[in-house]
Design a protein around this nucleic acid. Structure first.
Lengths: 143, 143
DNA sequence: ACTTGACTTAGAGTGCACTCTAAGTTGTAG
DNA sequence: CTACAACTTAGAGTGCACTCTAAGTCAAGT
């Protein structure tokens, strides 16, 4: 389709990254990524680096970082290497939050599993009771 | 405050469960819980069972179940024991989703950890370089 | 020449899950 | 008697993160 010199159209980038083209434009509008370079026809062309950055943003989002936080992170990134310590701090904080979230999920999941087992126990018992009565009927052992 | 015969006010229930009083009323309005019994002054009084159910709902929410799904679950619950198999099915499906979500979190967390280590490595190196040059200055070993 | 389809924009609309407001009632403490 | 705090309601408002719309441009294919 293209003379693919390693640049992707918005549709292609969207597919690779797993975000919609709409969302890609939205992320650009709100400053999560620098203005994407354009082909001669004004269409966006995403470089390997652009895709890498968007992919990382997507992972931050998927682990629950808010758009606001990501904007702050993107801003720091734009300010260059001097902000590396701050960015590391942000990532560490985020890591902590994700880990805390996972701890909660684990705990609640255990309760849900407990409920499932409880209910399955009740169902199995009921099943057994029916089996039993059916057998009695089949063998004419009623009453 | 109350002649606590084991019934909680909305405020107390909210605190115990970890949801706001607003949210408790909201959950009642949208049918996530039956209409709560009232004291003579029309104020809600939450029983131990009410609190248990709301607590369970909260855990479902916290693990990512949508309000819609919880409404479906609450409806089944109201229909009684015949719906137990369906409810178990729902819980099992939800368990699967939570586990899948946790897998994604684990994977993305690994990448974030990798970034942190990478950046910390860079920072440590830079630090070392400064140390080094400072030492050279201190010892008059410049140039 | 015309159609098709992928893109462009600014800005409006959507869905979710709350969260709050305003006006009113009730029960207790001073 | 009065003040206050805690509750009540219906319904409006909020914040988040998209998601879509409408109108337009452009390049390629028939």
């Amino acid at each position: 389709m293209n003379t693919h010199d390693d640049q992707l159209t918005i549709q292609e980038a969207a597919e690779v990254i797993g975000l919609s083209a709409h969302t890609l434009r939205y992320y650009e509008r709100i400053g999560l990524i620098h203005p994407i370079n354009r082909a001669s026809n004004t269409h966006r062309r995403y470089t390997r680096d652009d895709v890498g950055w968007l992919d990382f943003l997507n992972k931050l989002r998927a682990t629950g970082m808010s758009i606001r936080q990501m904007q702050a992170y993107a801003q720091l990134q734009r300010e260059g290497d001097v902000t590396l310590p701050e960015r590391v701090e942000m990532l560490k904080l985020h890591r902590q939050e994700v880990e805390a979230h996972m701890d909660v999920l684990r705990e609640f999941l255990k309760l849900i599993c407990y409920k499932i087992e409880l209910y399955e126990g009740i169902l199995a018992e009921a099943e057994a009771a029916i089996e039993d009565s059916t057998t009695r009927i089949e063998t004419g052992a009623e009453a």
